[in-house]
Amino acid sequence: MEGGGHGSDADREEDDSVSDHLKDRFRLSVISIAEAEAKKNGMEISEPIVTCISDLALHYTEQLAKEFELFAQHAGRKTVYTDDVILSAHRNEHLSTLLRSFCNDLKAKEPQSERKRKKVSKKEDKATASASASVIHIPDV
């Protein structure tokens, strides 16, 4: 259970890539996704195929981690942003547009709500300011 980050350097070097605990959790997620997808297509999926797909996905994840780090480094950052993830799909135009729209959805869901509120409040301030100005002007005329 403690395979996470508490092992010594030697422990980390022993296992080739990701600790077994994480691998198992990853595999479970893959199984649930693959089986749900097969059911949606009205198909059964044999177990060795699911295992095979999960190995593929894990390999893909490791490659992605490497790629994200390189992209972030190239941009002079230490943090991976959504742009790096979208960039990793640059070969596949359809996939990158899909990811971009998903990213926009994510952005729309959370932080922009505050910004929008601020913007709206600013606009309202201006509106009220201009309104009050006009209110002031009207009696002048």
Binding site: Y60, L64, A72, T79, Y81, D84, V85, L99, E110
Partner: peptide
């Protein structure tokens, strides 16, 4: 290296796809 929360969500979506 560390990762932004939205970047992680996006990676999850990429793997799911």
């Amino acid at each position: 290296t560390s990762a932004h929360a939205n970047a992680l969500k996006l990676s999850c979506e990429l793997l799911r796809i």
